[in-house]
Nucleic acid binder design. Structure first.
Lengths: 123, 123
DNA sequence: TCCATATATCGAGTAATCTCGAATTATGGA
DNA sequence: TCCATAATTCGAGATTACTCGATATATGGA
């Protein structure tokens, strides 16, 4: 990930409505939500939400798919991984001893209790 | 980490000079750099850089320590951990199967398999 | 105390962002 | 074709952010 894309992503998340939308869509993985539902969920006018969704999409954080008259939005979990990696990359580059504790702190929340969770849908 | 702090951090990083400064300071851990050196490094006027450093500090991403006439700035690695955790928290909450691959992808960069991977300080 | 160095704050001009009413485009059904 | 629904784009006013010259504050030394 180059810095220009990282800046787009950070700018997209630096706004309360958009951050809430992104977290909502992560919670709704993998079904996603249509644009109108998202606007109602956040109590924001429909056209204002459309602008926010366009910004999140342009930043690569979510993606859109038309389904009949609705447009379904979904979070792109890869983007989360890339952003987090971009943040820690510099210290990992030459100094794993600095970065390892960060990973150690992140891991516990995601350690699957059983091994039935090996494959994730991935492109 | 509550959302207001996350927004401050994202906004601070959503600007090219500040993102570069933050990454520079991560690379210079744990010694840090005085404000003037940072400004020269980025070819930015001293007072402009002071404003950027204040924004990064207010966001909790870096910290300042006076040392004689200089003020040394250092990256707060805890902030990286918190931000990354905030990003993945929602999927980790109920669905470790979604989040585990993210952690798996982050981990390899920090496993100190060969300790000969030291980076020469250059610039 | 006076001066030089190092950094922070103020003020103003410019640019970008946020918001939302109004108009536009796209889809599906009668 | 006409209509209703769903979403996007346009336009403008209000707010916020960026930049930098000028000025102010803080420290150390003579």
């Amino acid at each position: 990930m180059e810095s220009e894309r990282a800046i787009l992503a950070f700018a997209a998340l630096a706004q309360s409505t958009r951050l809430d939308v992104f977290r909502l869509l992560i919670a709704r993985e993998p079904e996603g939500l249509p644009a109108g539902d998202i606007a109602r969920h956040m109590s924001v006018p429909q056209n204002t939400m459309s602008t926010h969704l366009a910004i999140l999409t342009r930043a690569g954080l979510i993606e859109a798919e038309r389904q009949s008259r609705s447009i379904i939005y979904r979070a792109k979990l890869d983007a989360v991984r890339e952003l987090a990696f971009y943040l820690v990359k510099d210290c990992c580059g030459g100094r794993p001893e600095i970065c390892a504790p960060l990973i150690a702190d992140l891991s516990p929340c995601c350690t699957p209790k059983n091994e039935a969770t090996q494959e994730a849908v991935h492109e």
